[in-house]
Design a protein around this nucleic acid. Structure first.
Length: 288
DNA sequence: ACGTTTTCCTGAGCGC
DNA sequence: TGCGCTCAGGAAAACG
């Protein structure tokens, strides 16, 4: 389940292995993987062919590579997407969706592999003439906590204004990007906040602690090459990260809290799960 | 206008 | 052995 640290690992891999190369061939093997490209798979392939790939960028969980004036190749890994740099001779992966071949003699190609097809690639116009500009279609995605331009004060003000709960807010990519279910639970555990805490009641120190916690856990995961529970998240070389062994809350149902020893609990939450320590993270008092 | 719910997808794991 | 069920969840669309 790629979140910010995992996507950043992939961005670095793209930067190293495909930036600067010229696209020679594009094969779209599954239409759903280009569904964000409104003009369709054939148009996607035709317009990407011949382009030179620029510097790899990331905002939250989105990746993009400028491919010309005002145009970028945008990608999202969704739940199970992988961007792999493979030898051309390597056998096709079962869920290979898009193949990009290059005009050089390096012998490798870029592959988008995605079991559940929640992710995808598309070509998107940029917000302005700046070749590095953010694609228009992700202009609504907030900066992420590791972005130097992230505005902590504005984040706190937005939390106070919203009538929602803190985990919903963490997962709302228009408030803060890059945080998914894993790092939301980890940040809340570190900040000792219950997932159902109304954001309007958060004090400034609490929202500051929450942000600091998110930054710490994501930076630590990045240093380990990302989190992986299975083979679904890998870097561009197909390798998994090692952070999962250091998670404090996510996936640790019935295991002792590393702070107080109380068994971690799993609660059904929005058709998914929230992991928390019932002692360190007390539920808010019911309203009314 | 804003907050909430639904929707998309496939494979692993499990009980029977 | 195989069937049906549940679970994993990002983010946009649909809904209220």
């Amino acid at each position: 389940m790629p979140e910010l640290p995992e996507v950043e690992v992939v961005r670095r891999g793209l930067e190293k292995w495909v930036s600067g190369r010229q696209v020679a061939t594009v094969q779209v093997l599954h239409p759903r993987s280009v569904r964000r490209h409104a003009a369709g798979g054939a148009d996607f392939a035709a317009r990407l062919t011949g382009r030179s790939l620029g510097t790899a960028h990331r905002r939250g969980k989105y990746l993009w590579i400028p491919v010309g004036p005002g145009l970028s190749l945008l990608g999202h890994l969704g739940m199970s997407g992988q961007l792999l740099v493979q030898p051309q001779a390597a056998p096709d992966e079962t869920h290979l969706r898009i193949r990009v071949g290059f005009a050089d003699a390096l012998g490798t190609e870029l592959r988008f592999v995605d079991q559940r097809t929640f992710g995808g690639l598309s070509l998107e116009p940029a917000a302005d003439a700046d070749p590095e500009a953010t694609p228009l279609s992700i202009a609504h995605i907030a900066r992420d906590p590791l972005d130097p331009l992230f505005d902590d004060d504005a984040f706190h003000a937005a939390l106070r204004r919203r009538r929602t709960t803190v985990k919903r807010a963490l997962l709302d990519q228009t408030l803060v990007s890059g945080v998914g279910n894993i790092y939301a639970d980890e940040a809340l555990w570190r900040a000792r906040l219950h997932y159902d805490r109304p954001t309007a009641t958060l004090t400034r120190p609490q929202s500051a602690l929450l942000l600091a916690s998110a930054r710490e856990v994501m930076a630590a995961a990045l240093a380990q090459g990302g989190t992986s529970f299975d083979s679904l998240y890998v870097n561009v070389n197909g390798e998994s990260g090692y952070f999962s062994r250091e998670l404090d809350a996510y996936g640790r149902e019935d295991e002792p809290c590393r702070r107080c020893g109380t068994p971690i609990r799993r609660a059904a939450w929005m058709n998914r799960s929230s992991y928390f320590c019932p002692r360190c993270q007390r539920p808010p008092r019911p309203a009314g």
